[in-house]
Simulated scan of single mutants.
Amino acid sequence: MRRRRLWLQVFLGILVGCGTLLLFFEWEFLAFGLGKEKGFENWEPLFETISLIREKFYSEEPLDEGKLLEEAIRGVLRALPDPYARYLDPEDYKIETSDTLEGAFSGIGIVIAIRDEKLTVVSPIAGSPAERAGVKAGDVILAIDGESTLGMSLDQAVKKMRGPEGTKVVLTLKREGVPEDITVEIVRSIIKIQSVSAEVLPEGIGLVRISEFHGRTADEVQKVLTDLIAQGVTGFILDLRNNPGGLLSAALVTAGFFVPYGEKLLLVEDRNGKREAITNFIHPLVSTPVVVLVNRGTASGAEILAGILRLAVHAPLVGEKTFGKGVIQEISPLSHGGGVIFTVSKYYLADGTDINGQGLIPDVLASGEDEQLKRGIKELKKLLKDHALAS
C-alpha cells in the first residue's frame, strides 16, 4: 500500500511538474500575444528558446533582454527577401517619422538601400554634407568608420552615420569605373531639406527642382508652379535628379498638377496580387510642355512621377537610367515605441510597366549635370515649337 502511495505521489508530482512547465510556456507565449494565435504555431520554437534562455542561461553579465529583442527583430527582417526592410528603435522611429512628415533630420544626408547584398547609396540629398563630400548615387559603402558593412543591417548603418552636429564619419566607397576605393570624411550637420526650388531660365522656361517628397512637398510645388505661371513661363523642366522618393502621396499629388483630371496614374499591387488603379483626383495647373531630368539617383516616388508624366503628357525623360525601385514600404509602430519598415506593395505604371530592378530608360541619354540641363532645354524648345504650331 505504501509503495502504491509512493508511486501515486511520484506520478502526481510529474503531472504537476509538467503542468507547471506547460503553464510557464503558455504564459510566455501569451506574454508575446502570439503563441496561441492561429497561424503562429510554427513560431513556438522561438518563444521556447526565449523561455529556456530566461530559465537556464548562465552569464557573469546580466541578461539584456532589450538587446535580445532588437536582434531577434533584425534577424527576422534580415531573412526577408526585402532589401528595404529595417528595424527602428524608439529613437530612430521618432526621427524617421519626423523625417517623413517634416523633412528635417541630423546626419550626413544620404538615402541607402541593400542592393545585391551591398550597402548602396540610392542618392545623396541635394546640398547635404554627403553631396558636398562627393558621394554619388550608386556608390557602394564598404565601411563606416573602418567597420565593414558586410552583413550590416540598414538600421545599423543608418544609426552609425547619424550623430551629433559637428561630429565626423568616414566612409569607404566603391564606385563603378574607379579601380581604387574612395575614402571620404563627412562632417554631420542638421539637414533641413528644401524639397522644392525654382527659377526662370532664359526664354521663359521654368525650372523646378524637387529633391525629395515629404509632408509639405505638394503644397510647395503648388505654390512654385502658381508663381511661375503668373510670371508667364512658356514651359517647364522638372528636375528629379538625385530625388530618392519619399511620401508616395506627395508624388501623386505633384503628378496631378500636370496630368488631366481622372487620368490613370499607376497600378498598386498588394500581397495577394490584387491590383488597384489610382487616378488623378485633382485638377491640373500646367497645360504647357514639360521635360523631366532624371539620373541614377532618381528613385521610388520620383520614378513614379517621371513615368506618369512620360505616359500621360508625353514628357520626354532626359539624363541617365533611374535607380529602379518599384516597391512601396510602410512604417509600422511597435508597442515599445520603435517600429519596422518593410515592403507592403508594388507599383506598376498605368500601362503595366514594371520598373522594379529595371529603372526607366531616358528618351534622351545624357551624362553630367550641365549637359543634362542643356539637353533638357533643347528638348523643351522643340516641344514648345511643336506646341506653337499646333495652336
Rank of each mutant, 00 (worst) to 15 (best):
A126K: 12
D139W: 00
K136Q: 11
R162W: 14
K160N: 13
E131D: 08
S153F: 14
G146N: 03
G138Y: 11
I125N: 06
T120F: 01
K168S: 11
A137R: 02
G151T: 04
V158H: 06
K136D: 08
D139M: 03
R132N: 11
V158D: 13
E165H: 12
V158W: 02
V122K: 01
A133I: 02
V140A: 04
T120V: 12
E165M: 11
G127Q: 02
G138I: 05
S148E: 11
T149F: 13
S153Y: 14
S123P: 10
P124F: 08
V169L: 06
P124N: 12
S128T: 02
P124Y: 07
L119S: 11
R162T: 12
V170C: 01
A126Q: 13
L119C: 07
S153R: 14
S123T: 12
L150S: 13
L142Q: 03
G146Q: 05
K118P: 02
G146E: 02
L171F: 09
K118V: 01
K160G: 10
V169D: 04
M152R: 07
R132A: 11
A157E: 14
E147M: 05
V135N: 00
L142H: 01
E147W: 00
A126D: 10
P164D: 15
T167L: 10
S148Q: 01
V140I: 09
K160P: 10
P129N: 04
I125E: 04
G138Q: 03
G163H: 08
S128C: 14
Q156M: 13
K160W: 12
T167A: 14
A137G: 07
T172I: 11
L150N: 08
A126V: 15
K168R: 15
T172C: 02
P124K: 06
D139P: 04
L142M: 03
P164K: 15
A130P: 06
D155C: 13
T149R: 05
L171K: 04
P124M: 11
L142W: 01
P124Q: 09
G151N: 05
G134D: 13
G127R: 05
S128V: 11
V122P: 00
L142E: 04
V140F: 00
V158K: 04
T172G: 06
S153L: 12
A137N: 04
G166T: 09
D155P: 06
L119W: 13
R162Q: 14
Q156H: 12
L171N: 03
